[in-house]
Design a protein around this nucleic acid. Structure first.
Lengths: 209, 209
DNA sequence: GTCTATAACTAGATAGAC
DNA sequence: GTCTATCTAGTTATAGAC
């Protein structure tokens, strides 16, 4: 296993757990059992390492997600919001085959990216992977055409918030579910829990005046 | 205005904007125009300063919120989820009278507290202000008795995520709403947008198996 | 490519003069 | 209570030997 990949794996794990700001290059290199200088040799800077960690997942995920949503948009069938959100399940869970705990790690990283580091990652994702977003918006529009663009903007943002926040604390939630309710649940279970919630939220009657 | 309050105000502003990890004591004291050593003199440590910033708001908010929810629980009338969530509006907006941008700052801080600093703030809030949570759970239970405790746990967490995530990026959202939709909106408007969403989410049909 | 050593800087915290 | 000066320990990043 190459030094570069050892760094990527360690960084991914630590970033997901403690955030980008909260993780130092020393922690990463010591967990990866490589030299401190290797990060800058292979990636140039910490910021580029963050991008590399995210890109590894996004390059795997975005084509699957794009085509999964494309199918829904192209189909002649009527479409429900639960179906739209369910289109995320298979591509997201496929990250578990790509890498151990891939789904969970990726979603936690996404959550971190939206709250750490003053939105640089948000900029990176929306500019680098715009097709995922536009296909998703098109699918929601097809499922719920009455929603105005403005309401859509708000509700998709709320949805993003629900998902990334949930995922960035999913380890704690899974522990609580086991201790308090004696329910073993995994990341796929969390995804199944959240879909009815966000689908109902997006489909809510129009807001208070 | 006392040094202690100058520090609290500057810290509040910077913590809300850049997170607890992302803000240094040097930034705080230079914005507050006080000496660096004053933080440790008045508060002892950065961690205690964080608690002090949060406590200032929580001590203002929690009695209002507790009694606002208590009224709903005690009433003989049937209760809807929108009513339960609407019980937050007035106490939250009252923070604007207590302090300029109080509502927005507090909610942003709350969002930071859940993602920065590995959950120490979550522990602090749930142990220091347990009555708010228990009254809230009781009100939701009254409005929607079919919800099992387990479903309740998940959905209230999703709701928390929606709200704190939305609020921690509310400045950006308000800008986008103005630029893209030509709609001037303030924090009260954001709250009115989010209530139908979370109420519908909590009331969603039971999750996929 | 990988290492050691270190530069250059920033963090939180404190001792001690005033 | 407030200041300066400083300590200790951490950070990212790099120069140069191997």
């Amino acid at each position: 296993m190459s030094t570069k990949n050892k760094i990527l794996d360690a960084a991914e794990y630590l970033f997901a757990d403690k955030g980008f700001n909260g993780t130092s290059l020393r922690e990463i290199t010591s967990q990866a059992e490589v030299n401190l200088a290797a990060v800058n040799y292979h990636f140039g800077s910490k910021k580029e390492l963050i991008k590399a960690v995210m890109s590894r997942y996004m390059n795997e995920l975005s084509p699957r997600l794009e085509s999964s949503l494309q199918v829904l948009c192209d189909s002649e069938q009527p479409l429900t919001l639960v179906e739209v959100f369910s289109a995320f399940i298979e591509p997201l869970l496929s990250l578990n085959e790509y890498k151990e705990n891939g789904t969970s790690n990726f979603l936690q990283l996404l959550g971190r990216g939206y709250t750490d580091s003053q939105g640089f990652l948000r900029w990176f994702l929306t500019t680098q992977y715009p097709n995922v977003i536009s296909n998703f918006v098109a699918a929601v529009q097809k499922a719920y055409p009455e929603l105005t663009p403005e309401e859509m903007f708000w509700r998709l943002h709320f949805t993003m918030g629900t998902v990334v926040f949930t995922m960035s604390s999913s380890d704690a939630l899974i522990d609580i579910a086991e201790n308090d309710f004696n329910k073993k649940i995994d990341i796929a279970g969390v995804i199944r829990q959240v879909i009815p919630y966000v689908a109902a939220g997006v489909a809510a009657p129009i807001s208070l005046p």
